[in-house]
Design a binder for these strands. Structure first.
Lengths: 351, 351
DNA sequence: CTGAAAGCGCTAACAC
DNA sequence: GTGTTAGCGCTTTCAG
């Protein structure tokens, strides 16, 4: 039995069917497909026509297997629904698309098991770059795991890109795209300090979390530069959630009255803070100033509109793809800046 | 020269390397990999060990080429950053992951060109299911295009799933997961009507857009059932954007004062409405009632908290994956319901 | 239970 | 310019 043609077979047509129909050899078809090789115009159009007539589409897997690159980048996040991540995702997707790449989306929900599984999947897929987004934990096991991921991916020909988290060290085969947490926190704290605030609560300390560490560092440095001592009880531990901001604020205003400003770890936390304050009849910014961090769209929808630190989310995503595709060990840090809206005022004079 | 081993070669190890190291044949390794075939326990563990020692990972492309399925579903949206889409995306990703599938993410930004390109890409990738999310336009060209996509994907062995938009007809090889726009709008309009409102503006009519058509249908039907005639000038055209709600509301309150309630086409529009009203010194709900549609997280963060229609976003995403993978021509419609918060009150008695 | 043989659809040297 | 010849890494008959 002669080699059966898929086209007649009812299955999807292959390059062989196209070649047959155009009366040329298979490699010729491959050449017009790739377009990076001289082909006679006449042949070319015959092939093109055959492809159209058969409604032919290349098989990406066969192509990947035969050597041509995969054309995919992977995007790994905790959760797509956070506005923070969503905007980075948009940047990643846009840049990927503009560089002719497809984008694989994976979520881990902070589960190390799942994270590992995801990296294995990416190795199977030969993704050109694997972009991991979000802050990182400062424990040894975590670092070890990421270093393993970096080299495992490297061995499989993929590049790991850390986005929004600090580098793992120069010897680790990974690129990093970070943003200036410390600088943003410094600027914002200075803004509060220069308005006259002297007792600022930092709400939402995530212990051992890189994002917190960096932001707190800026917060402390600003205080130092203004010669203001910080009562350590002003660092209030908590998660980066609205509910967390809400609960902690209720506790805070119930317990002490010396705080004149709240630096929320993130805009989501700030949303909770604002809600609790409103319920407690404490007006913002007259009785209490509040600031956030991230500048997610919600920030400008809050009442009053939130003064916060802008993070260039989309650009972060774009840059991550660029770096990952160039496979350079570069490390870029994007700037942040404060956005003044309506939640900061000088502290009210105490009676 | 004998067949060179990749393992020694510095390249990623292949199944052949594993076979050699375990002292078995290649098919045997394949069998323990697939796990769907009897293999002697001893052999099995030898193979497993070899895989571990070599840090072996299967090549998804080779596997896909050799016949095994692709294990990927594609997710096509206008834009990932909308909370509406983000939550559907989460549902899709979760369900895909739980069914052992990878998720490809593509955005089209409403560009038909790009949409076509995306579908071609999906055909190349042999995605098992291609999930297209969001409302659709009611023009002939659009329909024709989607029908083409459906059959093109079908021919390539993929299943098209329409999520959040109406069916294309029973003869089109596609599944659809929709939600009850008309019912939700009907319930919400009734809520307003029963509170005593008689002049309700529907803000954000997207002409020829399926979502609008369905919601407006419910809006009209409720009026009919209450025996209330609708002044057609109450249908205000506009996009589903915050800025649109803002601008239109300014115009509205500047132009007429008979309207006592605003039915915003979406929560985003409602956010703009609320902002404009606040600026105009019109208090909600005392002077004006406002309702939205979608129940995105923002709705409960607004001040006052928005009364709106809940759409089961995540479940929509999950169901889409389920249907796509089962490849049945099913059509499911998920229910919606109103969520009463703080933006509706009886109309103020006119002087 | 395991191995040998034959492709999956495509690209990549080489010749002509 | 175009065809020939080899695989890419894996799964599948089909023998044994």
């Amino acid at each position: 039995m002669p080699k059966k043609s898929n086209a007649e077979n009812g299955k999807r047509p292959t390059i062989r069917d196209v070649a047959a129909r155009a009366g040329v050899s298979v490699p010729t078809v491959s050449r017009v497909l790739a377009g990076n090789y001289p082909v006679a115009p006449a042949t070319r159009s015959k092939v093109l026509r055959a492809m159209r007539e058969l409604d032919y589409v290349v098989n990406a897997h066969a192509r990947a297997l035969a050597g041509a690159t995969t054309k995919t980048v992977a995007f790994v996040v905790d959760d797509v629904t956070g506005p923070f991540y969503a905007y980075i995702a948009r940047g990643v997707e846009q840049q990927a698309a503009s560089e002719g790449r497809l984008c694989l989306l994976c979520t881990t929900h902070g589960d190390p098991e799942r994270e590992l599984a995801v990296v294995e999947l990416m190795r199977e897929q030969h993704a050109e770059a694997v972009i991991v987004v979000g802050g990182s934990w400062d424990d040894g096991k975590y670092h070890e795991r990421m270093r393993y991921f970096a080299s495992a991916l490297d061995r499989s020909g993929s590049r790991l890109v850390l986005c929004g988290r600090p580098s793992l060290g120069d010897d680790v085969p990974a690129s990093v795209v970070h943003y200036d947490n410390e600088g943003g926190a410094y600027a914002m704290t200075s803004h509060l300090l220069s308005a006259g605030h002297r007792t600022i609560a930092y709400m939402g300390v995530g212990v051992g979390f890189s994002t917190t560490d960096e932001r707190v560092r800026g917060f402390r440095r600003a205080h130092e530069d203004y010669g203001v001592a910080i009562d350590e009880s002003l660092f209030i531990p908590g998660e980066f959630l609205k509910s967390s901001g809400y609960d902690l604020t209720r506790e805070l205003v119930g317990g002490r009255d010396d705080v004149t400003a709240i630096f929320a770890a993130t805009d989501m936390v700030a949303a909770g803070v604002l809600k609790a304050l409103r319920e407690a009849g404490i007006s913002v910014p007259e009785d209490m100033s509040v600031v956030g961090f991230d500048d997610i769209p919600l920030a400008s929808d809050l009442t009053p509109a939130l003064t916060t630190v802008h993070v260039p989310h989309e650009e972060l995503g774009r840059e991550a793809v660029r770096l990952g595709l160039r496979r350079e060990a570069e490390q870029v840090v994007l700037g942040t800046h404060i956005v003044v809206r309506e939640t900061v005022a000088p502290p009210r004079r105490r009676a």
